[in-house]
Amino acid sequence: MKTTLALMKREYLEHRGAFLYAPLIILVLFGLSVAGSLFTDRVDMAVSVGAPTLGKMFEVGLVVMGGLWWAYLMAALFFYFADSFSADSRGNSMLFWKSMPVSDLRVLATKALSGALLFPAIIFAFALASATLLYLAVTVGAVRLPTLAPPLPADALSALANVGALALGYLGLSLLWYAPFYAWVGMLSTVFRRWSMPLAFLIPGIVGIMENLLLYGSGGPDGGYILSFLRSRFQFGFERGEMQGALFSDTPISAPALLSSLVETIDWTQMGIGLVVALGFIVAASEYRRRVLDK
């Protein structure tokens, strides 16, 4: 356990730029932009019959910010896996860790665990901090727009808990769904290092084109089996219009209802196969490190 924590701490120290410093800069810029817009009379909102309350606007703002942080995390994790699986081959750090009683599989599994748990937890904490800034902005905005009442602290906490539960569930399921893609680029990183980023897209694309050239007109799906499968695997989320309907309704967002609907749309067979494939990629990468990089 201590070894695993030490390895995860190393991952944090080596990649804190993307998962600590950059989000902190984003958070500071967000706070400054909100403060600037509120205290320089740049907020102008037409209030009319049927306009959303500040409470609903706060809830929608939470969802939008959560989506932006989710997109940042997904992109940052791609670059993390493209770098981390080969990062210790630079310099002499790999020689140090290979001198320790730690297998290559455990090292790579810890890297994957950091990407699945540690770094998402850090970004989720930044999302919560953004929610605090958003509530302060809404409260100050109510002072500038006295016709709108700010949400009560209890209502704001309820909305935060509801949207936070929704974001946490969506984040966890999406990480499981996209696990084979991250493991794929990580495995390529072990062999090709940073060239793994373009190769992660180039190799499936070339294989898909070759399939179309060889099997065109054989009655398969449009675009071929491989590219059609990849398109379906990249699709994750709520049914079309479901989230928009929840956002623009008069009632608060229901995290249990939305998560239940999301769970029903997931192909759990594909989810399980994807996790097995991700594990296979990690094992293959560890075997390459053990058999090739030891020479």
Rank of each mutant, 00 (worst) to 15 (best):
1 M>Q: 02
2 K>M: 05
7 L>C: 00
11 E>I: 04
13 L>S: 10
20 L>H: 04
22 A>C: 06
24 L>Q: 03
27 L>Q: 00
29 L>I: 07
30 F>P: 00
31 G>L: 01
33 S>V: 03
33 S>G: 08
33 S>I: 03
34 V>E: 10
36 G>N: 01
38 L>D: 00
38 L>M: 00
41 D>A: 01
42 R>A: 14
43 V>G: 00
44 D>I: 06
51 A>L: 12
52 P>K: 07
53 T>N: 07
54 L>P: 09
55 G>K: 04
57 M>I: 15
57 M>F: 13
58 F>H: 15
61 G>Y: 04
64 V>Q: 11
67 G>S: 05
74 M>H: 10
76 A>N: 01
77 L>A: 03
77 L>W: 02
80 Y>A: 03
81 F>A: 12
84 S>L: 07
86 S>W: 13
87 A>F: 12
88 D>Q: 11
90 R>W: 11
90 R>D: 10
90 R>I: 09
91 G>S: 05
93 S>D: 09
94 M>C: 07
96 F>C: 09
96 F>S: 07
98 K>P: 10
98 K>I: 14
99 S>L: 02
100 M>G: 08
104 D>F: 14
113 L>S: 04
114 S>G: 05
114 S>E: 09
115 G>N: 02
115 G>L: 02
120 P>K: 07
120 P>C: 06
120 P>Y: 05
124 F>L: 01
124 F>D: 01
125 A>V: 00
128 L>D: 02
130 S>C: 00
136 L>C: 11
136 L>M: 12
141 G>C: 01
142 A>N: 00
147 T>Q: 03
147 T>A: 03
150 P>A: 03
151 P>Q: 14
152 L>N: 09
157 L>K: 05
159 A>W: 07
161 A>D: 15
164 G>T: 00
168 L>M: 15
170 Y>F: 12
171 L>F: 06
172 G>L: 12
174 S>A: 15
175 L>F: 11
176 L>W: 12
177 W>I: 14
177 W>G: 14
178 Y>R: 10
182 Y>M: 03
190 T>Y: 07
190 T>S: 15
190 T>H: 10
192 F>I: 06
193 R>E: 13
193 R>A: 13
197 M>H: 14
197 M>C: 08
203 I>S: 03
203 I>H: 06
206 I>T: 04
210 M>D: 10
211 E>N: 11
212 N>C: 08
212 N>G: 12
214 L>E: 14
216 Y>T: 11
216 Y>N: 14
217 G>V: 12
217 G>N: 10
218 S>I: 13
219 G>R: 06
223 G>E: 02
224 G>Q: 06
230 L>V: 07
232 S>I: 08
233 R>I: 10
234 F>C: 12
237 G>V: 08
238 F>C: 04
240 R>P: 06
244 Q>W: 12
244 Q>P: 08
245 G>T: 14
245 G>W: 10
248 F>V: 05
250 D>P: 08
252 P>G: 08
253 I>G: 11
253 I>T: 07
259 L>A: 07
259 L>I: 03
264 E>A: 06
264 E>C: 04
267 D>M: 06
267 D>R: 05
267 D>F: 04
268 W>I: 02
268 W>Y: 12
269 T>G: 15
269 T>W: 09
270 Q>N: 15
271 M>I: 05
273 I>P: 10
276 V>N: 09
277 V>C: 02
277 V>L: 06
280 G>D: 03
284 A>H: 09
286 S>P: 12
290 R>N: 11
290 R>T: 13
293 L>H: 13
294 D>F: 14
